[in-house]
């Protein structure tokens, strides 16, 4: 028996975390960075960090926000490394790249417009929006992921939603 495959924190093994979160985390990362190849690389980095840190996780209840925090931090680190992306300002770089990226279905115009609008948000706003809208995290969980207050997150989500709506109808 490989003990490293059964590394235990409060009743959680790496295998269990992998089974439960590999696909949700992939899609979270994909929505953040758009490119399939980049998402794959970031997903692997994320699970390496999860494996290394699993022993330090105190409560099983915090698992979901913990794994999303690791994935989000990896995404933000990746985006900050790209000189053409500013982490503080809205940008259209990823949105502009979307249609020319492989692994994008161009036939669904509405979904494409929606995603372009999402990618045009700042990475912080995109994080809040995707975690709330797609991953159904509570504001309290998102607060654990991002380190922001619940009130700030509610405002950020509202603004992000408005921007996406405006982008869709324009």
């Amino acid at each position: 028996m490989n003990i490293f495959l059964h590394k235990r924190t409060p009743g959680v093994t790496f295998e269990e975390v992998l089974k439960e979160f590999e696909q949700p985390l992939y899609w979270h990362i994909r929505r953040m960075v758009a490119s399939h190849d980049d998402a794959s690389d970031i997903l692997q980095e994320t699970f390496i960090h999860i494996y290394k840190g699993l022993g330090s996780l105190r409560e099983k209840a915090a698992l979901r926000s913990w794994v999303y925090r690791i994935a989000t931090n990896e995404c933000l680190r990746f985006l900050s490394r790209r000189k053409e992306i500013s982490l503080t300002e809205e940008n259209s770089f990823l949105a502009d790249q979307l249609e020319s990226s492989p692994g994008v279905d161009l036939s669904d115009g509405a979904a494409l417009r929606f995603q372009k609008a999402l990618l045009a948000l700042s990475p912080q706003q995109r994080t809040v929006f995707t975690l709330r809208y797609y991953d159904d995290l509570s504001y309290e969980e998102i607060a654990e992921v991002t380190g922001s207050s619940v009130q700030t997150l509610k405002v950020a989500y509202h603004y992000a939603k408005e921007k996406i709506k405006n982008a869709i109808i324009s």
Binding site: L5, E15, L18, E22, Q23, Y26, W27, R30, R31, A34, H36, S40, L43, Q44, F47, L98, G103, V104, D105, L106, D108, A110, A111, L112, F114, Q115, Y133, Y134
Partner: peptide
């Protein structure tokens, strides 16, 4: 929650092997 993104066939199986 529709997204325009797709993944190659068998991607998640192959990725699971890598991650495991």
């Amino acid at each position: 929650k529709k997204m325009p993104y797709t993944v190659p066939d068998g991607y998640f199986d192959a990725m699971h092997e890598k991650l495991a």
